[in-house]
Every structure is written in structure tokens, then in C-alpha cells.
Design a binder for these strands. Structure first.
Length: 468
RNA sequence: GGCCCCAUCGUCUAGCGGUCCAGGACGUCGCCCUUUCACGGCGAAAACACGGGUUCGAGUCCCGUUGGGGUCACCA
């Protein structure tokens, strides 16, 4: 057998740098990474910058940045496909010499004419080059090198995810290996690079399944060892259509910067999208490495569910270290070092209420608001004359309080409420409005403790007189 | 349209012929906890697309129908 499955595992992620690292690519990278780590193999990164026009430095940086954020470390340096053009051309010419490829001198016009004819006669278009069996060079005329694809028989791929897939060889056309400018096409470059890099397992999007048959034709022509293929179903939007910009097909940087997601949440979500392990939902990276396999990757596309991601993110925020979360939101609301210390102390109360980092920042704002603080409409409605009277009583009691800690504060506030013949809520809600400017916040005693005596008393006093 | 693939609650999934009147999670709806909002706890509604086979027995195997997706470049 030429099967590569008994050799040390080598996987790769091969994005084309024409944009950010999108969420589907991130999952492909994750699966490759997980598979390699699970088997103690190598995970390589190759930038497919064959398309010089569309490839940009910014896109490359965005991809590397995204992978680092998701903690998908690759082994060795990253490879750049454009560096291997000479090698690609060498292989193309080798195939030419062996009669497995040919120089095709067809013009764009001739090609278009064939395509139109096929359309007119309502039959599938497949290139029919008159040069397929011509071996002599035609001098200076521009040409491309095409694969002389087999026309008889069939090709079978034992895909680790999709199962046994068979295609008639007559379906495979004489696609271009080397362009007229001497650069390789994707189809050639992938095969040569994967071979040269020793890739044993090709794990990628299902949209490449059809390509696998074309690539296999090159591999067999060259006598390269055949990699194990695993074509993972694509991620669809909530409406079932291919994930697009208006869905969640944002770059992972947007999940971090705009949506306020934690990398472990994104990673966990992506892992569970298309793969499962019994009832497990919350899966650590270590656990994932131990459990991950290709056998449990589903065969059908899955829809992106933002609600579930958000829920997972809330879970990981609650688990996250307070100092780390503080560092994450401090720049968003511009905090001094001292304020950050306060934020760290408030974090346990704050993080239980947030599903993303933006909500976390938003929930923290009241702590650092300048007096007199803004009171939103719903909170202002709470500050009735009756409520102000209660606030006055509370202010008096609190001003005389010896110890400013949550327990003492609770006892004091309860006492005030009782002496005024009011339920706790009657006092707590106006107090919340005065202290935070909102109707929802962390526990009121914690808020008092966090804000401190002076600030708390001042904020209460600010609301004791009616506003005009 | 040709070729290829797919099909369990709204969504992600468990299930690899009998232990499934189908389990978990998100979401939804109730209840509890409670000063608010969350968190947490408890509970409910909710699925094997349809039709044929195979088998003592099918969500699990086969075929078809329907539906969905992918792909058909000198792009990757």
C-alpha cells in the first residue's frame, strides 16, 4: 500500500491570503491542528499566495494573527507557495516529458467558442483540446500545460469524513497545470507542495472534494504517495445558505474586537460545530486534543448559531481570570491603574452578567462615571418623592456607619427599610438608580462596597433633591 | 443543467440492528432562588423528511422520491 496512514501524521492549513481568516477557515485550521496534536504529529501552515494580484500582506498578517489568537500554533516557519514556483514548473515539465501532460495552444476565443457551443447544444462543457495528442513544440506561440487526464475508468476516494466517493474519469477534464505566464495553478501547486512538505492527511472544506479527484490525477501521474483525505462539511448561515458576510462570516478578528468573544469560546464552539463527543459541550483544549478524531465529524453542513456561541462565551467569561478580563476591557473604557484595581475587585460580580466583553465593559461603566451620574429614563422613573425620602433616611444611616463592607451595609440598609415600613425592594431599587443610573446592576450591597463611602453618599445625595 | 455529497427536536448534536414510546446542549416557555438583572436549580413543549424494500426486529442497512448543499476558470 502507498497509504500514508501508517506514517507520522503531518497536516497543514493552507489559506489563501485574499482576506481575513474567516470562521470556516478557522475551523478547518482547528481540525487540522487537533488531528495533528492528537496523533503527536506536525501541523504546518502554508500561505497559498499563488494569486499575486489578490494576495496581500495585510491578509497574511490577519491570518497569522487570527491563528495565534486561537492558539493554533504551527510547526516550523510558515511556507509561502509562491516560493516554490520553479519546483511547480519543474513538475509540470516532467509530466510533459512523460506524456502525462501537453502543451495547449488554444486561444481564449477558441475556448469561449467551445463553451458556447456546449451551452447551445445543452450538453456539459468539457474542454476538447486539439493539442492533446500533439507532442511537438509549436515554437514561440503562447501555451498552457494541461493535464492529459485519463478518460477511461473511474477514480475512488476513501474519504475519512465523506466515505467512499466515486467519480467517472470521463468527468475529469484536461485542466491547466501551468499558465501561459509560467506560473502554476492552484491544482498543481497544492499537490506538489503537499508532497514536498510530507503532508499525510489533507483535512479541508468539502468544497474541495471535487478538486481531490483532479489532484489525485496529478498525484498518480507523478507516482506520489496518496494522502488521506478528509473533507469537512461547510458552515452555513442561519438560513441554510453558504455562510456569507451578512451571516457570521466575519474574520476571527471581528469576533474578538467587535463581538467581544473569548478565543476559548470560539474554539469550543467551532469544535462542536460538525463534531461531537457524546454529551460533552464544554470541552477544554487538552480534552479536545485527547478526544478529537475524524470518525465523529458529521457529513452534513451545519448552521452557524450565534446564540449558542454567545452562551458559550458567557460561560468562559465567568470562568476567566478577573485580571485578564480587566485588561481586556480597560482600554475600551479608558481606565487608570487605580481604577483597574477597583475593576478587578468588581469583576466577580460583573462577569456573571455578561455574555461578551462589550457587555462586560458596559456593565462596568457605572463604577467610573463622573458625578452627577447620568440616570437613564427607567431609573429616573424610580426616583419618586417617596423614594427620595427613603434615600434620605438611608443616607443618614449610611453616613453614620462604622464599617463600610457588604455585610454591614446589608444590615444597615435592611434596618432602614424596616424602620421606614418599606419592603427592601422599595429602597433597593431607588438606591440602585442613584448609585448606578440604571435599573439593573450587581447586588446593591456590593455596589455600595465597591463604590466606597464617599462616592456612594455623594451619589445618593445627588438624587435626594427633585430635578426640574 | 451535468457530476458529487448530504438528510434525528427551530439550531448544534448523541445514536454506529434490539438497552430509543430517541439522550444532551443552545434557544423558547413555566416554576424556584432573589433588592434588579444575571448566575444557578427544577420542569415543559419540541425531531428520526417521505415511500418502498432487507431482517424475527431499522433512526441505524439497500433503493427511489422530495428537499438541501458543493462543484463545473490560465481563482484558490
Amino acid at each position: 500500500m502507498t497509504s500514508a496512514s501508517d506514517k507520522p501524521v503531518v497536516t497543514r492549513f493552507a489559506p489563501s491570503p485574499t482576506g481575513f481568516l474567516h470562521i470556516g477557515g478557522a475551523r478547518t485550521a482547528l481540525f487540522n491542528w487537533l488531528f495533528a496534536r492528537h496523533h503527536g504529529g506536525k501541523f504546518l501552515l502554508r500561505i497559498e499566495d499563488t494569486d499575486r494580484v489578490r494576495s496581500t500582506k495585510e491578509a497574511i498578517d490577519a491570518i497569522l494573527d487570527g491563528m495565534r489568537w486561537l492558539a493554533l500554533d504551527w510547526d516550523g516557519h510558515e511556507y509561502y507557495q509562491s516560493q516554490f514556483w520553479a519546483r511547480h514548473a519543474e513538475i509540470a515539465h516532467k509530466m510533459l516529458d512523460r506524456g502525462q501532460a501537453y502543451r495547449c495552444y488554444m486561444t481564449q476565443e477558441e475556448l469561449a467558442a467551445q463553451r458556447e457551443a456546449a451551452q447551445r447544444e445543452r450538453r456539459p462543457f468539457r474542454i476538447e483540446s486539439p493539442w492533446r495528442d500533439v507532442t511537438e513544440s509549436q515554437g514561440d506561440k503562447p501555451f498552457v500545460i494541461r493535464l492529459k487526464a485519463p478518460r477511461e475508468g473511474e477514480t475512488v476516494i476513501d474519504d475519512r469524513v465523506q466515505g467512499r466517493v466515486t467519480v467517472q474519469n470521463s468527468e475529469i477534464d484536461d485542466f491547466v497545470l501551468l499558465r501561459s505566464d509560467g506560473t502554476p495553478t492552484y491544482m498543481l501547486a497544492v499537490v506538489v507542495d503537499d508532497h514536498d512538505m510530507g503532508v499525510t492527511h489533507v483535512i479541508r472544506g468539502d468544497d474541495h472534494l471535487n478538486n481531490a479527484f483532479r489532484q489525485l490525477a496529478i498525484i498518480r501521474a507523478m507516482g506520489f504517495p496518496e494522502p488521506v483525505y478528509a473533507h469537512v462539511p461547510l458552515i452555513h448561515g442561519p438560513d441554510g445558505a453558504k455562510l456569507s458576510k451578512r451571516h457570521g462570516a466575519l474574520g476571527v478578528d471581528a469576533y474578538r474586537d467587535e463581538l467581544g468573544m473569548l478565543p476559548e469560546a470560539v474554539s469550543n464552539y467551532l469544535l462542536r460545530l460538525g463534531w461531537g463527543h457524546g454529551d460533552a459541550e464544554i470541552i477544554s483544549r487538552d480534552q479536545a486534543v485527547e478526544w478529537f478524531d475524524l470518525d465523529h465529524v458529521g457529513k452534513s453542513p451545519s448552521r452557524f448559531d450565534f446564540k449558542k456561541l454567545e452562551n458559550l462565551n458567557g460561560h468562559y467569561i465567568r470562568e476567566a481570570d478577573d485580571a485578564r478580563l480587566t485588561a481586556l476591557i480597560a482600554p475600551k473604557i479608558g481606565l487608570s491603574g487605580k481604577q483597574q484595581q477597583m475593576l478587578v475587585r468588581a469583576m466577580p460580580e460583573l462577569k456573571a452578567r455578561a455574555h461578551d466583553v462589550n457587555q462586560l465593559a458596559d456593565g462596568a461603566r457605572f463604577l467610573f462615571a463622573e458625578r452627577p451620574i447620568d440616570v437613564d429614563q427607567a431609573a429616573a422613573a424610580l426616583l419618586t418623592d417617596e423614594a427620595r425620602a427613603l434615600l434620605g433616611a438611608a443616607h443618614q444611616e449610611l453616613a453614620a456607619l462604622a464599617n463600610w463592607d457588604a455585610a454591614s451595609l446589608e444590615a444597615a440598609i435592611r434596618e432602614v427599610a424596616e424602620s421606614q415600613g418599606a419592603k427592601l425592594g422599595k429602597l433597593a431599587q431607588p438606591l440602585r438608580a442613584a448609585l448606578t443610573g440604571r435599573t439593573t446592576s450587581p447586588g446593591i450591597f456590593d455596589v455600595l462596597a465597591l463604590l466606597g463611602r464617599d462616592e456612594s453618599l455623594a451619589r445618593i445625595a445627588d438624587q435626594m433633591e427633585p430635578k426640574e
